[in-house]
Design a protein around this nucleic acid. Sequence first.
RNA 1: GCCCCCAUCGUCUAGUGGCCUAGGACACCACCCUUUCAAGGUGGCGGCACGGGUUCGAAUCCCGUUGGGGGUGCCA
Length: 468
Amino acid sequence: MTSGPRFRFAPSPTGFFHVGGARTALYNWALAKRLGGKFVLRIEDTDEARNRPEWTEGIIDALAWLGISGDDPTFEGPYFQSNYAEAHLAAAQRLFEAGAAYYCDLTSEQIQERAKATGASGYDGYSRDRGLGPAPGRVLRFRVPDGETTVFDLVRGDVVFDHSTIEDFVLLRGNGTPMFLLANVVDDVEMQISHVVRAEEHLPNTPKQQQLWEALGHKPPFWAHVPLLVNEQRKKLSKRRDKVAVEQYRAEGYLAEAMVNYLMTLGWSPPGDREIVPWSAIERDFRLEDVNHSPAFFDVKKLTAFNGEYIRMLSVDDFIAACRPFLESPDVPWPADRFDPSKFGALASVVQSRASTLAEVPGVIDFVFLADPVLDEQAWNKTISAPGAKEVLLETTKAYRQLPDWRADVLKETLESVGEKHGLKKGKAQAPIRVAVTGRAVGPPLFDALEVLGREEVVRRLTMVASV
RNA sequence: GCCCCCAUCGUCUAGUGGCCUAGGACACCACCCUUUCAAGGUGGCGGCACGGGUUCGAAUCCCGUUGGGGGUGCCA
């Protein structure tokens, strides 16, 4: 019945999809694809999450954006942890009956007191042999035997844990509900998971889970603990301090391909000296045993650089299509009815070579669609006070008014000859016109912009500014 | 406290005992190109945490130190 490895990915819905989770998902996905296995999605749906189905939808949506989609036969699920509630309880019952687990009626306060008294830390196994049965308020604890557990980790090799450092952990709460550890293992058993690839923070829990697998009569899966993603303080990325939501990067105009490629280079690198590689190459080359052991800093700057490269790899048409949501968004700085797709299309290629995210695109061409560009006072004052600037502005306006051909090259020629008359070099001569028409001292190539804007509008803006 | 993991340029990494005077990428700097800003091109800055071993030879293996991180719940 089972055919091929089964990789489980188990994000917990929290209202957003963490970039660290995204990388783990990608690792699982690459492996499942190459090995002809399955990517098994399990949602650890908590009570809160069950009341918010949009959280789960968000995860599935984010995964699909990254290219991990339910439409692909490699994808299996989603399965919900809550659907296995009965199996969790049945497993607990079995462990109890087999003597692998026992009930305990100590409260956490009592446990703390005992710990203080004996000088030991944590639970001391007080109820191990008291023969207690189930009752409200009593927790079921796993009886950790003497000995040691060796976790065979595909990334790190063997990691040995002495059982004396593992206390008898709780399987069932006092109210009878299963703990994460139990639920997790039971789910994996039920889904016949063969590989658990997850973040390193779970490594210390692994010997507990492995013992559970064995106590339940199953051969444990292959484990792989991949390094953590950290911030500049070298701390685990957290929602509070750090920008970690995949959805947010998507909203800011990062391309999925760039995100995927960048994420994969954190803790791993493609063979050779090239980092920008297509997914097909990643899928072919990714190996768990090549994954690094140390935490990696999630560097937005480098992500952005990757994104710029990916944007430039797009055909102009694809770039225009990718920009659409950002140009038609309600947050756009211009009145919606003034947007003209053909004008954007004419400027698209010059914008494309400059953009590092799609979200910044509206900001560089807003002057085209604004009734009147927002004038940067400082830039204006500086520009117009330069010697010859005022003259160039006036004369160019006049020349443009009666230009026979309204084309970028003619516009350029005209301005340059006016500039030369006043001893201004190309760049300098351009400045007053640029600020007058676009409102800013920097922007896309001026003459392309002028051509797109049209004579009437350009002359209008020039005379308006000149009269101030 | 206890347990576990980790340690190559600022950052992500290549490196699995000689090919290393340590390679690439991001960032930064300079120059070239140029129509401002980018993009592109060329070059530069910059690293094996420390101390002991092992070895003819160590970034690579071993031990220790230091430093960082994670875990240690009737959270997930």
